[in-house]
Design a protein around this nucleic acid. Structure first.
Lengths: 380, 380
DNA sequence: GTCAATACTTGACTCGGGAAAGTAATGGGG
DNA sequence: CCCCATTACTTTCCCGAGTCAAGTATTGAC
């Protein structure tokens, strides 16, 4: 959290994290929330205020019976520090500058003609410079960069073990990017980064367990269980796209059969429509225009996604689920069938789990990357 | 851990837990394993030795280059304290006495003509008396009882929210049993209890994430993720039995379609065989005798289970999976198809996840209950 | 103005754990 | 055989996070 300090009192991290994610809170409320004494919160908050991370808000409305000294809630000074987040896709870099409260303050992107590591690093450098030296003068108050990459990523070491889309194997992205940008870099899998963002700053706030499902050419899932992100022992987790929901379904490129992705991925949908040369967007248009055959393909796809989500819900029992992602441009076509498939396969009380179906703009992926660097900052 | 103490130094719990689950370890090894200083381990171990929970073993083989003082490993005094575990099924109580090391020292059972709460408590009292006052003289060194019940159980309060098999709603089982037995009681869901036992004392030892699948009339799953048991926000988790693996499969009593349980539960198998009056055991005999039609039913069932397990593995990426349970009396018929279904649907590196298929005797469920009370004891 | 109620601060204390130096027990080299 | 390096454990002293209890601050109700 502070450039010099080795490690920081747990209470300070806890206070900062809670104010960050759960908004302005009085010291008393924080103490109750964190199971600490009021004294401990006072002591933890003081240095945070002195260093400009927290501020004391004017007393607002009263809480209880109406008597007593009003609380002075602690709020984040969002301007105290800025964070860059960049999502690296196969053909583009998407970058944002976020403040400490994870609000997007600036964004930019650069095309990526190819995914050579060196080339990506060069372009990344340009993108970061563009973001930090553009209007807003963020450079002076920015020390961290978060990168989101699809594939198998070790966040602890910043190593990209394997990224099929980028054709990368064992790229020490954190080290390389730190040399290239002179920022402290954190690297995370893209879906996990997005999940983190929703967990800290979105619909997952306060949820002990939480799932985020992304629908697109691939179908992915980020999971938070017992308050912690699920990483998977083999570097693999959240592969909802390869949960089999139909033993007699189409073969999947992964070797499985009837995988959600083999039924509901954009490519799979195009294939299932079976009209040569037709693009996904054209299929969407046809379905919206009332083409029943194409509509049935979308119905089956939505149902498969719903089934897959129910599998997640039955297994880990999250308290909230958010469905999102690129492919949800067509989300009006999917949503009712996602919900129907989910309701049918959700067991018992799981069916009551709130399910938000909501497209997230692409920029959100970059915000996820920034969020991961905010986490790294707070925990440091 | 100690009758008087309110809470105990974290290091003491950590040391005791680690020795309990990972066997005799020297103080140095414990310090490394737990990230503590050697001094801290020495201090934590002393009272544990004084109170008879740990003992110092004679130095055995050397580790490193061959010089230096030999280590004196710390081991559990398994006889220091005993624990009763009882699994409550719809027609029987199965009880065991375990030592501190979770070894079964005595066992007994009582039929349960009906599942009235009062009746169950009376029988439970008799069973506990039989176990503690029988040979072995465990009574004096036994203070805790663990109960395992199927259904929705709140371990923290010992409330059985809903148990379909027992027809119980909101039974404060912990309170009732404590009055009845004058032991400190812990209540847990049966599958979670069994999972806990495997996690602390079985194949799941040392695994950060771990799954246990039980196959029988129902099909259940216990999950450990990031070292912690998954409980589910709605009191539901691990419902692998209701993961849908075949959209065109048979309807399930839960309202879903093609649920694993609707294909591979014992009732479902009997139904799929479709010969009036035939029992599950008879179906097993037929299949073993080479009846291809019946064999195909078992093959389909095993495949469905394997698919369901792959769903678990793809989603949470456990480092080990154990398949077990009552129905696995027929496990020779299931196993190859479980493995085949798993391998087909497991994504990427997940397919390398070690999968043990292994019948656990019924007594193990009671041992699971005892394990939960050992955990409660250690954490106290 | 007093009183109760609530929020926050202060200072003394407790206690868990770390650092470093000391003791114990071994094998190997002179 | 005696040192010495090596490893295991113990002791002492200290620090610092967090609690407790008492005190201050700020409000509304009477």
């Amino acid at each position: 959290m502070f450039p010099e300090a080795e490690s920081v009192a747990p209470a300070m991290t806890a206070v900062l994290t809670t104010v960050l994610t759960e908004g302005p809170l009085s010291r008393v409320a924080l103490a109750r929330r964190l199971g600490l004494s009021q004294a401990a919160v006072t002591k933890a908050a003081r240095p945070l205020i002195e260093q400009g991370y927290l501020q004391e808000l004017a007393a607002t409305e009263r809480s209880g019976p109406g008597a007593g000294r009003p609380a002075s809630p602690l709020a984040i000074c969002a301007d105290r520090e800025f964070f860059v987040g960049v999502k690296i896709t196969a053909d583009e870099l998407i970058g944002v500058v976020c403040d400490l409260g994870a609000q997007v303050r600036a964004s930019a992107h650069r095309p990526l003609p190819h995914t050579d590591v060196d080339h990506v690093l060069t372009e990344l450098g340009h993108l970061v410079d563009e973001l930090l030296d553009g209007p807003g003068d963020y450079r002076a108050r920015t020390r961290r960069l978060g990168l989101a990459v699809s594939g198998d990523v070790d966040r602890a070491t910043g190593l990209v073990r394997y990224s099929p889309f980028l054709h990368w194997h064992d790229v020490p992205l954190q080290d390389l990017a730190e040399k290239n940008t002179s920022l402290t870099v954190t690297v995370e899998n893209d879906v996990k980064a997005l999940t983190t963002a929703e967990h800290w700053f979105g619909e997952g706030v306060g949820a002990e367990s939480f799932a985020l499902v992304t629908v697109g050419s691939g179908i992915g899932c980020g999971l938070v269980v017992n308050g912690r992100l699920v990483s998977g022992a083999h570097g693999v987790a959240g592969e909802i796209g390869h949960v089999g929901v139909d033993v007699n379904g189409p073969a999947c490129h992964c070797g499985g059969r009837g995988c959600v992705e083999a039924i509901a991925g954009t490519d799979a949908i195009v294939r299932a429509v079976g009209r040569p040369g037709l693009t996904f967007e054209e299929a969407v248009t046809l379905a919206r225009a009332g083409d029943t055959a194409v509509g049935a393909v979308f119905a089956r796809a939505g149902d498969a996604i719903g089934s897959g989500i129910a599998a997640v819900a039955n297994l880990v029992g999250p308290s909230r689920i958010v469905v999102s992602g690129e492919g949800l441009s067509a989300y009006d076509l999917f949503e009712p069938h996602i919900r129907a498939g989910f309701q049918r396969q959700a067991f018992g009380a799981v069916a009551q789990c709130p399910l938000s179906v909501r497209p997230l703009p692409f920029e959100q992926w970059a915000r996820g990357a920034a969020t991961v660097s905010i986490q790294a900052f707070v925990a440091a």
